[in-house]
Amino acid sequence: MNIFRLLGDLSHLLAIIVLLLKIWKTRSCAGISGKSQILFAIVYTSRYLDLVTTYISAYNTFMKLIFVVAAYATVYLMYIKFKATYDHNHDTFRMEFLVIPSLILALLINHELTVLEVLWTFSIYLESVAILPQLFLVSKTGEAESITSHYLFALGSYRGLYLLNWVYRYYAEDHYDLIAIVAGLVQTVLYCDFFYLYITKVLKGKKLQLPA
């Protein structure tokens, strides 16, 4: 464990808490992509199957459980409890366009052709693009509430901090995982446009509004 990884995990945790609190407090999931949330639930389910096979640490187990449970809780709130507020007219990104290529790529490029390893790889590939429906929703409506922007910033920062973690681990531990690194780069790059808008607008107290 190093500081970048810890900050990355905390940033991820913060994103999840911000999102759940936003939905719970406002009793609304307007502006949030249910497609992205379903994809995240798929991502963490397929990645953390090793919870039952491999013990790494109490921290590792605890965080994995939180991420899985929170992902399903979010999907539940969006599709069942606060279904009436879900913006399904704008949330039109097709999930299969992300799930199927990720699965094919995981079958082709992986560390080992075993069920757990392919599912882990699939989750890494899918995670890198899972935010696309959310970014698509923001671009369709042309704006995002501040709280949604904070959520996206925390979620985007998490993989960015993991990139620093991987640089650190390469030098300090001689450890690297190309699949995670390349997917993490893709994931972080997808947020760049958003990061720019967040820093230039939201942090200055303005609403995140896309140029018409």
């Binding site: 990884r5 090793d50 590792n60 965080m63 994995k64 991420f67 080992e112 995670a180």
Partner: peptide, 10 residues
């Protein structure tokens, strides 16, 4: 380290 490692990251 490398191929077949358990994945200790989240």
């Amino acid at each position: 380290d490398g191929i077949g490692d358990s994945h200790d990251e989240l």
